[in-house]
Design a binder for these strands. Sequence first.
DNA 1: TTAGTGACTGTAG
DNA 2: GCTACAGCCACTA
Length: 105
Amino acid sequence: MSDTFFDKVYEICRKIPSGQVTTYGAIAAYIGSPKAARMVGWALNKSSSQKEFVPAHRVVNRNGLLTGKIHFPNYNTMKELLESEGIKIKDDKILNLEDILWKPE
DNA sequence: TTAGTGACTGTAG
DNA sequence: GCTACAGCCACTA
């Protein structure tokens, strides 16, 4: 069932193409509550409990900063995953954010 | 059941 | 340009 804000977050995250990223605000806005971006991040935090893998590392804040990395086993895990997909990271921040930004449509 | 908290964002000063 | 505050929804204690 994907009726809640929470479930929709997982659904959208799984649609993020490899090598691209999106923002909490973009996801929240697509669902209908741009201000609920916090819930998006929180949902991803719980994504570890989900059966299906959720590419939470492809979700960053609107500055392209890897804020979510703090919830990974190691602070460099998120960066490593993104770099392995061809995304350039500098100081835990995506350099070409606008270039690889994906938005749920 | 009530209260607190959280991987954010936009507006105002 | 930076700092501060409010709003959003769901989960945990």
